[in-house]
Design a protein around this nucleic acid. Structure first.
Lengths: 213, 213
DNA sequence: CGGGGCCTTGATGCTGTTCAAATAGAGTGG
DNA sequence: CCACTCTATTTGAACAGCATCAAGGCCCCG
């Protein structure tokens, strides 16, 4: 709650708080695991501040980032009994945790509706992600990524809470390719970086054209 | 209903039929469109016989196959008001079509449950597909594909209802790469093709090892 | 038996990876 | 506040995997 830069979303709106009455409030530091791959999925989470990534690890160390979550987002909702992905805090963050089944039978409908919405949203985003991974070039992937992040982060200057490695594992590329594409987009004047983790979109239309899909 | 080879799933089990009482029965021929991209998603469908693909077309002609559907599968359930993908029959097929909202208020709960299950299944499959597209090599993709199809098609000899182009657009590869990988897997004795559209898995364990993810 | 699409195979090229090293940046303790 | 250290990021050069381009063969169907 202290320094401005530790709260990348000072202007985030977080409606729907009322449904989370009785939820436990948890805080995590950068890199801490919120839940693990293959862990039982009892709890669902609502991000209050900070940012979170979900990851899937293969045996040989390859990693796929499932998604990035921002304040107001619900995460940890699964279609099975276990978490398919793990979730880690990208920086200091606060979440509300609610037991999925049991307990609050006083208004199961409300919880169900919340789970339904989270699942629908998850499906929509996963479909978009799939399209990006399947048939887009490195340049298109990065352009789309910058636009997507900017859309979630209202504000002139956009902060990237994730590392280049996270971006690479999200887009199915390497950090070197990410870096080169960002460099190219900046050289062409489509975006402007101030440090490695902050940028401003200069020509949204041109960036949209590049993003294609 | 006539020739054996026009029914690639003679042994398919199709439970859950009772929930589809009152649904319209439709038939399609090879290549026919069941619903279009961006079309209103009033109806949900249950595949009775044949096989179906869902596709997403980009402006420049690139195509991503969303999934393949087999008898018993429900398709056309969307999180929004419109179909994000189109659906086409891979060969002659029959489907049951049910209006999603309205009408059968006599048992909305049953319909809701069906939609929930279909959405959950869709999410699970889309997540797997995403993992395959993001961090797998061409060889791994093809190996995983052959295993997945074989699992859905119970039987010693597996039929491929889709073309090489469909497989390529599902896996984010080209038909040439598909062909080469199939050739390699066959040369190594992991699978055996009888014609281009039928195969038998020779060494399931070795194929699983290759599929990794 | 012949036509035509589908599939395979080969040669070449490009996109993105890998390996390696330099630079920038953030965090820490003095 | 500054110097130092350690990590994250950038940049460069060589390489690899998959795409592209171009024939050629197979198979299904009429």
């Amino acid at each position: 709650m202290s320094l401005a830069h530790s709260h990348p979303f000072p202007n985030a709106v977080t409606p729907g708080h009322e449904d989370w009455a009785g939820a436990a409030r948890l805080t995590f530091r950068a890199g801490e695991e919120i839940y693990a791959q293959d862990e039982s999925a009892d709890l669902i989470y609502r991000l209050v501040s900070g940012a979170v990534r979900t990851s899937y690890l293969l045996a040989d160390g390859r990693r796929q980032i499932g998604d990035f979550y921002y304040p107001g987002d619900v995460l940890g909702v699964e279609t099975g009994a276990l978490h398919r992905f793990s979730a880690e805090a990208l920086g200091p963050c606060e979440v509300l945790a609610l037991r999925r089944s049991g307990s609050a039978a006083y208004d199961a409908g409300r919880l169900d509706r919340m789970i339904w919405q989270a699942t629908a949203s998850e499906l929509q985003r996963t479909q978009s992600h799939m399209l990006l991974l399947g048939r887009a070039t490195a340049c298109e992937k990065v352009a789309r990524f910058l636009l997507d992040i900017a859309e979630r982060f209202r504000g002139e200057i956009v902060a990237l809470p994730m590392s280049r490695q996270d971006m690479a594992d999200y887009l199915g590329l390497t950090i070197e390719t990410i870096s080169r594409m960002l460099g190219r987009l900046q050289a062409e004047g489509l975006v402007e970086f101030v440090g490695a983790r902050r940028y401003r979109i200069r020509r949204p239309g041109a960036l949209e054209d590049l993003a294609a899909a």
